[in-house]
Design a binder for these strands. Structure first.
Length: 504
RNA sequence: GGCUCCAUCGUCUAGCGGUUAGGACAGCACCCUUUCAAGGUGCAGAUACGGGUUCGAUUCCCGUUGGAGCUGCCA
């Protein structure tokens, strides 16, 4: 029913409203649009649907733009990131802020007035609200606008307009149209009876366009070929199709994505925890993980592969494999995927991601990292196997920066204490290391540790392992040595290692 | 109420008339390890229900049930 030209490249758009941060549901929509454009060598347009003056802000626009950039979803046309407070756009179909496109809407409305598909309505919002309420009170179903202004005499209507009477413009739904039908790229053929469609408002009495009007005008002007969006817009689609038709514009292909739900099967919201991309960024999730995970909510690569790069996504992404059912956001799987990416970092990559968090936590400076790069490189083996998010790192390695103090990890100690014979070892260890004259002297520590096994009648191996747990919290054995090494006690550690291997 | 969408393990999904219904997360067990992880092996776990169509339905059709969305001068 459209796009008969097979050689033309698709043009898709992501059109968020700057009424809040970038929601993960919106992010997934953006990802699919982006991947579709990249897969087909098409164009990805970013448009800001800021027609709601009440809730739209410049700050939110910038937050969304930054979130898009962070995710690596580069757009070919659209607004520029803020470089001084001015809202600027780049691309041949701009501007890309709806508030800057009023001329297009005025022209479109004029066209619809001329061909009789739009009419002025003088009912006030208050009157309509009252009617809605009355119907509700009476227990009668409100069937939408009663079309009381639809058949006003054109001359009379014009006179009222000329007299300055406030009015909005409504779509004159062609009642003889027959059902409005379209082929949804993910759901197949959808059909809506014409008589349930409302004569909805195109242009408000203040002259601004409504979403259902502005969106269609822009999609038509911008040559959008595929509209990939959330399925909360399914019901809007027949109305919008009527506007496309009234405008004489070719119909794009629609693809409606199911919602992302919270664990309780309800729309994902604040009470489920983080909902915006910004929040996940702050919590230490990697952008490539967010893209990977979100892409997985409704799309699968051959059904077997869960970890894939953005390039792989673009290479394989097609609309016909998008699943129709809603997906529940699974925070545990997100954590898992993030930890997988972290584990696969090279030492250099790991350090690169780690440093900002160490600095933010006040544990070190950039200069120190540069001066002692090898030392910092040594942190990775200590934590990379069990860290899920980089934000956890400062707490896990703080002891490395806090000087030579003996601290016991309570959870580990509890477990160790539960083991047969461990309690005595631990107590002896604690006592030995707490001795005043020890003062964290390498030789003294070594002597204290070496003296323990015979004193307790335990195998050296056992005592050393308990020591590791007690000293370094959750460190596994090699890391303890490395950590002591990191603290700058190369000599003592060499001797400790020698002592242990000799003892075993 | 009206219109519309959705329905495979707890979760994300593969499947596009014939499969022992596959994978991943989570769970459990064992191995490794005197902690925690990571890793290895294994176990358990699903076609919502009822009718059709068909030689044969997870797959196609209808209904029921359950869930969701829209029903604004919000988007």
């Amino acid at each position: 029913m459209n796009q008969s030209t097979t050689d033309s490249k698709p043009r898709v758009r992501f059109a968020p409203s700057p009424t809040g941060m970038l929601h993960v549901g919106g992010a997934r929509t953006a990802i699919y649009n982006w991947a579709f454009a990249r897969h087909n060598g098409g164009t990805f347009v970013l448009r800001i649907d800021d027609t709601d003056p009440e809730r739209s802000t410049k700050e939110n626009t910038q937050i969304i733009l930054r979130a898009m950039s962070w995710l690596g979803l580069d757009w070919d046309e659209g607004p520029c990131l803020d470089d001084g407070g001015q809202e600027r756009s780049e691309g041949d179909y701009g501007p890309y802020f709806q508030t800057q496109r009023s001329d297009f809407y005025a022209q479109a409305l004029q066209k619809m007035r001329d061909n009789g598909s739009a009419y002025p309505c003088f009912c006030t919002p208050e009157e309509l609200t009252a009617k809605r309420e009355a119907a509700k009170q009476a227990g009668v179903a409100y069937e939408g606008y009663d079309r009381s202004c639809r058949n006003l005499d054109p001359a009379v209507a014009q006179a009222r307009i000329d007299a300055g009477e406030p009015h909005c413009w409504r779509l004159k739904v062609p009642l003889d149209h027959g059902p409005v039908e379209f082929d949804d790229a993910v759901r197949g053929r959808l059909s809506f009876p014409i008589d349930v469609l409302d004569d909805f408002v195109l242009v408000r009495s203040d002259g601004t366009p409504t979403y259902n009007f502005a969106s269609v005008v822009d999609d038509a002007c911008m040559g959008i070929t595929h509209i990939i969006r959330g399925d909360d817009h399914i019901s809007n689609t027949p109305k919008q199709i009527l506007v496309f038709e009234a405008l004489g514009a070719p119909l794009p292909t629609f693809a409606h994505l199911s919602m992302i739900w919270g664990p309780d099967g309800k729309k994902l919201s604040k009470r489920h925890g983080a909902t915006s991309v910004e929040e996940y960024k702050a919590q230490g999730y990697l952008p490539e993980v967010m893209v990977n995970y979100l892409a997985l909510l409704g799309w699968a690569l051959a059904g077997e592969t869960t970890k894939f790069s953005k390039d792989t996504l673009c290479e394989h992404f097609t609309l016909d494999h998008i699943s129709k059912n809603p997906a529940i956001f699974d925070a545990e799987k997100l954590d898992w995927l993030n930890s997988v990416y972290i584990r696969e970092f090279s030492p250099d990559e790991f350090l690169e991601h780690l440093v900002p968090h160490l600095i933010a936590a006040g544990l070190c400076t950039q200069q120190e990292v540069e001066d002692k790069r090898d030392w910092f490189l040594g942190i990775r083996p200590l934590i990379f196997e069990r860290i899920k998010r980089m934000t956890e790192a400062p707490a896990m390695v703080a002891y490395l920066f806090s000087g030579p103090t003996v601290s016991l990890d309570e959870a580990s100690v509890a477990k160790v204490l539960a083991k047969e014979g461990s309690k005595a070892i631990l107590e002896a260890l604690e006592q030995a290391l707490a001795a005043d004259d020890l003062e964290w002297d390498a030789a003294a520590i070594e002597a204290a540790l070496r003296a323990l096994p015979p004193a307790l009648g335990q195998k050296p191996k056992t005592v050393f392992q308990v020591a590791r747990v007690a000293l370094c919290g959750n460190m596994v054995s090699p890391p303890l040595f490395e950590s002591i090494h990191l603290i700058g006690r190369e000599d003592s550690i060499a001797r400790l290692k020698a002592a242990e291997s000799a003892a075993m």
